[in-house]
């Protein structure tokens, strides 16, 4: 699927102060029965967010909310940037996790580290995962929670910088290929198919070397 080109924006930060947030927590398994790519937002973090048991097809607007969960804090209601701790997205390869985060409205995720498969899945959906040093993440948590107003960050993907509400500019580092794809909103299957000749040449060579893979 082609993704939309990533545009620079200013967004509010939601601080989720937990390490090792796994994809079962991001979107529990009962919602994986859907055969669509959309509609997962209301069930993002379902078990932490609501006090009852979530089932597919429910109207989530009437469900009892967990007042202690940060997503339900009105201060962060308009957040589009998720700030969290290390190894975010560990566990299952379910792409429903980035689908749910994007469907909810997040555009950027900031953490000291992300799990590999989740990171890849996020990029494929135009969701930008940004890895920052632990110390900078600590500082952002402090800024995000110290004031009554949410912290806002300017994300400039063209120039690879973040500006945290006048608290200074932070440089971001991202794989150049991912950068290219996000900025231009590329369909990477289409991109790969432009190399169809290379693939065919590889297959012809490989069929000779390892005929048992083509039998």
């Amino acid at each position: 699927m082609p993704i939309k080109p990533f545009e620079n924006f200013r967004g509010a930060v939601l601080p989720l102060d937990r390490a090792n947030v796994d994809t079962d927590a991001i979107i529990p398994k009962q919602f994986l029965k859907s055969i669509k790519r959309t509609g997962f937002g209301p069930n993002l973090f379902d078990e932490w967010r609501y006090l009852d048991r979530g089932e597919p097809g429910q109207d989530c607007s009437n469900r009892p909310l967990n007042p202690d969960f940060v997503l339900n804090d009105p201060k962060y209601a308009d957040a589009t940037i998720l700030l969290t701790r290390h190894n975010f997205g560990c566990g299952s390869s379910r792409e429903h996790a980035p689908w749910a985060l994007a469907d909810y409205g997040f555009k950027v995720l900031i953490a000291p580290s992300f799990a590999d498969i989740f990171h890849q899945n996020a990029i494929k959906n135009g969701l930008l995962p940004i890895v920052l040093d632990e110390a900078i993440v600590d500082r952002l948590f402090q800024l995000a929670t110290d004031s009554d107003e949410p912290l806002t960050i300017d994300v400039d993907l063209q120039n690879l910088t973040l500006d945290a509400d006048g608290h200074g500019t932070i440089e971001i580092d991202i794989d150049p290929f991912h950068h290219h794809c996000l900025i231009h909103g590329l369909d990477d299957i289409g991109l790969t198919l432009t190399h169809a000749d290379d693939i065919a040449a590889y297959e012809a060579r490989r069929q000779n070397e390892a005929p048992w893979l083509f039998a």
């Binding site: 699927m1 390869s93 792409e95 980035p98 498969i117 890849q120 494929k124 299957i189 790969t192 693939i199």
Partner: peptide, 15 residues
């Protein structure tokens, strides 16, 4: 393991 976008990528391109 891969996500669904990559499942599709492999189906379409074998890569």
């Amino acid at each position: 393991g891969v996500g669904t976008s990559e499942v599709e990528h492999v189906l379409a391109t074998q890569c």
